[in-house]
């Protein structure tokens, strides 16, 4: 199946229209709106409205209709679409205010739609730029450069005779002899041993400070074993963990 990002699309085809179509098809078409600005541009075009004088009430209604439609179709409505809905409603309500009140509110007399129009125009520019890029890739896909040829870069094979091989092998052998071998034995304590030791200490003594216990341990590996051992004992044995003060040392003792 194709990844959604790989879906090809056709810039020249009409923008999606809401018609009686199968649910899936409709969903696909709606999904094509790359974002709220896209949907908005489409609606403005659909309404044959002037972008510099958007009939905000009508467009807002249409926009909300789409959002509802997307919801009934179970298309997850991205937050961005909702933000735009809120913006549209805000603009609509601002425009409904009588002039006198607007002046009283001392708002600057900028058309409340202006910021949105600016954003739409900017978006449209980049949509056109995207189309230009789309056309360029289409052209580029019709151009082929020469394939790679064998060169030392991508083909490390070189001519070597059997004697070359022998020489190399001898060198390796010689180096092997020179190597001083030293084996270091790893001190290891199994988890079972660790649990047994720890149990002995908990049940013989009165209590054990876990911080002190961990500090006794020297290697990282052993520390991990010790930690697992503590978890295991807490889980299986009747012990109590106590912490007298916040961030204080943890004491383990038999329950």
């Amino acid at each position: 199946m194709e990844q959604p990002e790989q879906l090809s699309f056709d810039f020249y085809r009409e923008q999606p229209e809401i018609v009686r179509e199968s649910r899936d098809e409709l969903r696909l078409k709606l999904g094509r709106f790359a974002g709220p600005l896209d949907l908005l541009l489409y609606l403005i075009k659909q309404e044959q409205a002037n972008i510099f004088d958007i009939p905000i009430a009508r467009i807002t209604d249409e926009y909300l209709k789409y959002i509802r439609l997307m919801k009934t179709l179970d298309i997850s409505v991205a937050g961005d679409f909702l933000v735009m809905a809120a913006t549209l409603i805000e603009i609509k309500s601002k425009m409904l205010l009588p002039k006198e009140i607007k002046e009283e509110l001392d708002e600057d007399l900028e058309d409340p739609r202006e910021a949105l129009v600016r954003q739409l125009l900017e978006h449209q520019k980049f949509k056109n730029a995207a189309q230009m890029l789309y056309e360029r890739t289409t052209v580029e896909q019709a151009v082929f450069a020469r394939g790679r040829i064998e060169s030392d870069d991508n083909n490390a094979e070189t001519n070597a005779s059997v004697f070359d091989l022998l020489t190399v092998f001898q060198k390796i052998l010689a180096r092997h002899k020179e190597e001083i071998q030293m084996e270091i034995e790893r001190e290891e304590i199994s988890l079972a041993d660790m649990i047994r030791d720890l149990k002995k200490r908990i049940f013989s003594g009165k209590e054990l400070n876990l911080l002190k216990f961990f500090e006794e341990i020297r290697t990282r590996r052993e520390l991990v074993t010790a930690f697992i051992a503590v978890l295991e004992i807490v889980r299986t044995e009747s012990v109590r963990l106590m912490q007298k003060t916040t961030f204080g040392d943890i004491i383990i003792k038999k329950g």
């Binding site: 194709e2 959604p4 990002e5 790989q6 879906l7 090809s8 699309f9 094509r32 790359a34 974002g35 980049f126 949509k127 730029a129 995207a130 189309q131 230009m132 890029l133 789309y134 890739t137 289409t138 896909q141």
Partner: peptide
């Protein structure tokens, strides 16, 4: 090869410019 999606192309246009 598969073409880039509308969203990817738009994003690319913004980044390019």
């Amino acid at each position: 090869s598969a073409k880039l999606s509308l969203a990817a192309l738009e994003t690319l246009a913004v980044i390019a410019y």
